[in-house]
Design a binder for these strands. Structure first.
Lengths: 195, 195
DNA sequence: CCCATAAGTTGGATTCATTCTAAATTAAAC
DNA sequence: GTTTAATTTAGAATGAATCCAACTTATGGG
């Protein structure tokens, strides 16, 4: 791994056949937020301010990130970009995502899946992550994040670049299914005692 | 992967030589919380309520989780337990951590590192994650989590098992070092123009 | 207390997301 | 334009996490 003077790392990449689609597609409800134009500008400005070059590949990746309200994985980004930009390398996707993550422009989201997904939405919100179906739902309440970051800065001098709030639990549907399953199991057990 | 009637998965494991220690040790400040005894009881009760057996291995893992205030990785847990329990399998560590995670008793924490770390502290708090030195510091403010989860339940019927709040940014020390580096670079650049 | 059996454990093989490498290309400053 | 360090890329390598199939054991019923 190349380590540059400014401390950024550069990585690269892997076997063709090993790239698989997401085993279980992760769909998610998302309320629209922050205008795409301002979002791509934000990403590009972040790169520029760090003294990094704006390449066509990086521009394409930023464009993708700015225009999605899902929580894409590196694979999903590659798959989409490959359609219009067939020569883009997976290494570049990883490089750019890591760089943006290190700059705090996007936030990594992991929830037991194999792939790392990214939070591209700068709008403060809460992620509701279901332990059963893995669905992520964005919730826009008023978590008082600004107040929290201000207090943290005052107390610890920690300067927040991005916030992530996850509530892990069971969505309504899965909670009901869970109850049903427990009933079914109990029934099956008692049935064994009948002729 | 064995999938049981109750939906739990069982996994296993990997090559001996591939187990390495944490490349960069992740130390972290932590304010003590929830009494160990009540924490181990919580873990064991959670397993029992799910209809799972209490094995010596699971008991040992829960004991470890209850008595640490770090954010251990599977490797770290294995390393410690191996001292007193030399025959414990890495597969068992992964199985148990995954199970506890699926039950919401512990929460997975990922932050760009290779290993997955776990949040074992049920006390609601904020993780301050430094983008530069990767240090995690627990911050106990009043994020109003209870209020938030109650509101989420009312609005969406999502039942929260565990909460995770991460603020990603720069700790005081790294922020200062960063400024210094930028100055040094600027100086080096201007020096090139001198004889 | 003992048995039966489904649940859990184990170590070795395997998978595959991510990182590394070194050569080729290119953005951007002069 | 030229120059040069930054970036990209394809292919090789890494290693955390998972799978597998045989073995062991917790636990409930007799």
């Amino acid at each position: 791994m190349a380590v540059r003077a400014d401390g950024f790392r550069l990585h690269s990449f892997t076997k063709e056949e090993q790239w698989r689609g997401p085993q279980e597609e992760r769909v998610l409800t998302t309320v629209i937020s922050a205008h795409p134009t301002s979002r791509i500008d934000h990403y590009l400005r972040t790169l520029k301010q760090a003294g990094l070059r704006i390449t066509p590949q990086r521009r394409a990746i930023c464009h993708f990130l700015a225009n999605t309200n899902r929580h894409p994985s590196a694979y999903q980004i590659f798959e989409e970009l490959a359609a219009t930009n067939p020569d883009i390398s997976r290494a570049t996707i990883y490089n750019t995502l890591n760089t943006l993550q290190e700059l705090g422009a996007i936030v990594e989201l992991s929830f037991g899946s194999d792939h790392t997904h990214y939070e591209t939405n700068p709008e403060p919100h809460v992620n509701l992550i279901c332990l059963r179906c893995q669905k992520i739902t964005d919730y826009y309440g008023d978590p008082g994040i600004d107040m929290l970051t201000a207090r943290v800065l005052a107390d610890t001098d920690f300067q927040t670049a991005a916030a992530r709030i996850d509530l892990v639990g069971f969505c309504d549907e899965c909670r009901l299914q869970r109850i049903q399953e427990i009933r079914d199991m109990a029934k099956a057990t008692s049935d064994q005692h009948k002729p």
